[in-house]
Amino acid sequence: MPPPFQNPPTGRGQGVVLRSDGPGSDVPAGWIALAGGMLSIHEVTKRRGSREILSGLSFEARPGRVTAFLGPNGAGKTSTLRILLGLDTATSGTALIDGVPFARLADPVRKVGAVLEGSGAHRSRTGRAHLRWVAAAGGVPRARVDEVLELVGLADDSRRRVRSYSLGMGRRLGLAAALLGDPDVLVLDEPVNGLDPEGIRWIRTFLRDRAASGRTVLLSSHFLGEVAATVDDVVVIDRGRIVAQGSLSEVVGDHGSIENAYFALTGGAR
């Protein structure tokens, strides 16, 4: 069993002013350029063969806010995140981070941390060796490897090979790699998937804290109850199209709960 996550640090290494107001408030326009980390998806379309996976998707994820990206399996959430991260190329449209495509960021490791499915690590490497090469690629000091291992609660398992990790430990390793550069932006695909209840609570507090320190969090999730407890803004997509976006309260509207809103919007309760 991995030891518990550490309590989240607050605004470590960041020169930004902490915002005192809670979730749901608007960010002053002039402030965004200073803090960085604005994610803008504009008219993104993705075709694979004759199949259109994304059809003219546009939305933003802003600094100081946790934005949730919701939708059924196969709706195009992961594809959108992959395009944002430059892993896949959009057929048309742009996905920018502070106005720049991901691949042209001056310092990607310090700007954006991302966890997509799984650990993102080779099975026969140790957890520590994995983090060491990512740190090297990002020019992050080696000491930071031990810090993030402590942070996600993998310090005692860091010399074991990734193949022996449980699903949740693999996810923690992925998160540790994403946090190496203490980035302005976190992009997380299903962050609570595979985590134990203690890990889920930790990540909720952690993400709220990132947003409170002025940073940007974009996550996809199927856990609607968790979403309601964590996020400020919501983007709902279905079959490659946006069906709703806005603040949590705007999207919930008079549906009463995010779950009711979700099923009404995606037609899932047929």
């Binding site: 991260l85 892993l87 960021l105 990607p108 690629a137 990002g138 992925g174």
Partner: peptide
Amino acid sequence: RTTLVAAPR
């Protein structure tokens, strides 16, 4: 994925 997120060029 880890490689290209850390080193996208």
